[in-house]
């Protein structure tokens, strides 16, 4: 077991290092974006003096390296700085309630996005795995082909198109679900779930194909193994051969694909959020880029990167744990 623990610690350290590198990339890239906040907020009335004043207020006149480290130092303590837009708004009203902190602005949006991702994952992952197992079981049958065609066409269609098709069938023609997902803080869980269902279904359609096809391929890949032949020669049913004998050995690639798709659920949902007017982090991100609200953009990027790295890390560790050779050394 000590063996596994070392591997996990190594992966964690590597993950942290990756995040650090990514933070540099994000910071540099965001600062290279054309235009700046002072100019975009002052618009027509921008004089060199007022632009310089705002830049000084926000610390934009400091050298990039200094700004990076002060940002990183704050981020490590959970302080992503103040949103430029909110800060200047606070200045106008003269209040200083702390409402301008990036963390406060992102937190509820991020919670919403996580909720949507969780609901989507709860539907998509079991659905894809079961479909994959069934497709492997009835490989090359009509069912297998139909499943493949269905999942492939859903992954090939643009998300907004899938979203509108679902709205048409589930909200307009048969008004079962609401077409607009306006979520707010003190909503009951069931209401929340109901409002989230349609975007979650759209995302399910988007991510299922990948996971289902990997499950099918990973299982079929093993079907010519001697131990599968042995299971068949022990008279085990085809379903048992696949679920009990093939699946546990096919987990590593499946876990990895699931992780990539889960990361997509967190980071790639902008379009779906826009279509359903879902108040998630994707919308906030796009708006912030529009206003050159650099602290928010940076924080969002960092969260996305962290989500990717964390999920891949989890996938790595789980694939390691799925290998009995590592779990039970000689």
């Amino acid at each position: 077991m000590g063996n596994v623990l070392t591997i996990i610690l190594q992966r964690l350290a590597l993950g942290f290092l990756t995040l650090l590198v990514v933070s540099v990339v994000i910071f540099v890239a965001v600062n290279l974006l054309p235009g700046d906040f002072a100019q975009s907020i002052l618009g027509q009335g921008a004089t060199p003096e007022s632009v310089a004043a705002i830049r000084r207020d926000l610390g934009l006149d400091q050298p990039m390296v200094t700004r990076y480290f002060s940002w990183l130092g704050g981020a490590l303590q959970g302080d992503f700085g103040s949103s430029f837009a909110q800060a200047s708004f606070a200045n106008f009203t003269g209040s200083d309630s702390g409402a301008g902190s990036v963390a406060q602005q992102i937190a509820p949006r991020f919670a919403n996005t996580m909720f949507l991702a969780a609901v989507s994952a709860a539907i998509a992952v079991p659905f894809a795995l079961v479909l994959g197992v069934l497709a492997a079981l009835y490989r090359n049958s009509v069912f297998d082909r139909a499943t493949n065609i269905f999942t492939l066409s859903s992954i090939s269609s643009p998300e907004f198109f899938l979203a509108y098709v679902l709205i048409l069938f589930l909200a307009v023609l048969n008004p079962i679900l609401p077409s607009v997902s306006n979520i707010f803080a003190d909503m009951a869980f069931s209401d929340r779930l109901e409002k989230t269902l349609l975007p979650a279904l759209t995302l399910t359609l988007v991510v299922t194909a990948h996971m289902m096809r990997m499950t099918r391929a990973a299982i079929i890949n093993l079907l010519s193994s001697p131990y599968i032949e042995m299971a068949r020669l022990k008279g085990m049913s085809p379903l048992r051969v696949i679920v009990r004998h093939a699946l546990p050995n096919a987990l590593a690639p499946i876990i990895n694909v699931v992780a990539i798709n889960l990361a997509y659920l967190i980071t790639g949902v902008v379009v779906v959020e826009v279509v359903f007017v879902y108040p998630g982090i994707g919308q906030l991100f796009v708006d912030s880029v529009k206003f050159r609200d650099i602290p928010v953009v940076q924080a969002c990027c960092l969260i996305f990167a962290a989500a990717y790295i964390l999920l891949n890390l989890t996938a790595d560790i789980m694939s390691i744990l799925s290998n009995p050779r590592l779990r039970h050394p000689k």
Partner: peptide, 8 residues
């Protein structure tokens, strides 16, 4: 070695 399932 190949005919025993490595997972069980």
């Amino acid at each position: 070695a190949a005919s025993f399932n490595p997972a069980h």
